[in-house]
């Protein structure tokens, strides 16, 4: 793997196949991306989901910054991401994932510092929700 895309990794934590499907859409638009994982909460209690997200984080490029992105504020995926943030490992997390957030993340992650990146991702996601 080149150093491209290795600096900031991403785990999408979502219901059903939402994470995997969103990432397929991202790669359909941007091409194949390194250093990400998708975790589904299907069939999992909070403890197992926590372990699954931690395993996904451990599987990212070593030493990279990590951003967790879950789908639903107040849902189990968000719960587990918040738990990991609260454990003080320096992991960042966003919730309310949509396609524009992920596109912003993958477009900008190699040239943006992580705290600036998560704000940009949040704003892009919010701006994407419109009545047309």
């Amino acid at each position: 793997m080149s150093s491209q895309g290795k600096r900031i990794g991403c785990v999408v934590v979502a219901h059903g196949n939402v994470g995997q499907c969103l990432m397929e859409a991202v790669q359909g638009i941007l091409g194949k991306q390194p250093n990400w994982a998708a975790v589904s909460n299907t069939g999992m209690g909070l403890n197992d989901l926590h372990d699954a997200v931690e395993a996904a984080v451990a599987g990212l490029a070593s030493g990279c910054e990590v951003v967790l992105i879950s789908d639903m504020p107040g849902g189990s995926c968000h719960h587990v991401c918040q738990e990991i943030v609260a454990s003080g490992t320096g992991v960042r997390a966003l919730t309310g994932v949509n396609l524009m957030m992920l596109l912003e993340f993958f477009v900008k992650r190699d040239r943006t510092e992580v705290d600036e990146l998560i704000h940009a991702v949040k704003e892009r996601g919010r701006d994407a929700v419109r009545i047309v």
Binding site: H15, G45, L46, M72, G74, G75, S76, H79
Partner: peptide, 11 residues
């Protein structure tokens, strides 16, 4: 519910 309050409950 061992997921406590989550999507199935709120939505």
């Amino acid at each position: 519910d061992d997921r406590l309050i989550h999507g199935q409950v709120t939505v």
